[in-house]
Amino acid sequence: MTAVDVLVIGGGPAGLESAYSLANNGYDVAVLEKEKNICGHLNQAHSLFPNFQNASEVRSAMIDKMTHPKISIHNDTEAIRIKRDIDKWGVETGSGKEFMAPALLLATGFKSFDPKYKEELGYGIYDNVITTTQFEAMCQKGSIVSPHGQKVKRIAFLNCVGSRDEKVGNHYCSRVCCINAVKQSIEAKKVLPEADIYCFYMDIRMAGQFYEELYRKSQEVYNVNYIRGRISEVSPTIDKRLHVKCEDTLSQTPMKITFDILVLMTGIEASLGTVALGQQLNISGEYNFAKSLSLHMADNYSSHKGLFLAGTCKRPLTLPEAVADARSAAGEIKNYLKTLKQ
């Protein structure tokens, strides 16, 4: 049994940021991470929008913060069961360890939509249909290649895969994919200056500082093409490229176009941990994201006393938003722990 002041479930950016903030305020914090490494989805990122900061810089900064003496990191530790005693939260983990703290922070994050559910897009059937995560890994390596060894002349990015799609049950906008598609198309152009890049969108949503400028830059400097239309069917060509069908809705004409790589901008869904713990704690809201007490007034609170929420376990957020939300959660927890002492 390990007793601390605050237990953080989830060692992604949100969990780590609040752990650091709380430790700085003098609290003992334990972070439970089910994976081998902390930093969550940030591990799969090459660079970050809007300023193309190298993700590894942000990662190492985060890891540095975790050397704080008040923070203990527990890798390979998945929270399985959560128990509540009076003013105490207990967590049982898969490895059999037990933790206890007066405050519990849920920062269990998101998972990417599995595009196999959209069979018509050919993911898992044609090798050159990849997800945004796979594309990021290619950027990381600095080589964007077709699995069939052909020279990559054309890349397509398709937005809203698994978001804004009632057929797969996700009505919501995942918020980050548009910006990410713009960022990745610029990355693609940096690696392959000769290639033609096309972004297929239903709406381009660039709300947030510097994002619209990024969009503008992608057109002005990088010649990225934007086509307002949703790709509805993908079929292979004889030379194993991809034949894509969509309507260019603005010219009101159907369009056929061949690509070497199709990148699916997969949407954000509640992670398995978010779903499981949300149901266990009875705080599952829409689409299985964790439900905060009040969107405008108490967004880091849950309906249980001493249980707090931070980051993308609540809804899709960009990285700066998730981290800011984590700091605000730390502030709320601090206040809560103070009232407990009185």
């Binding site: 069979e119 018509e120 050919g122 059937i125 044609y126 069917e233 993908v234 079929s235």
Partner: peptide, 8 residues
């Protein structure tokens, strides 16, 4: 045509 898995 919307279930290319069957076709291949």
């Amino acid at each position: 045509h919307l279930t290319p898995g069957i076709i291949i």
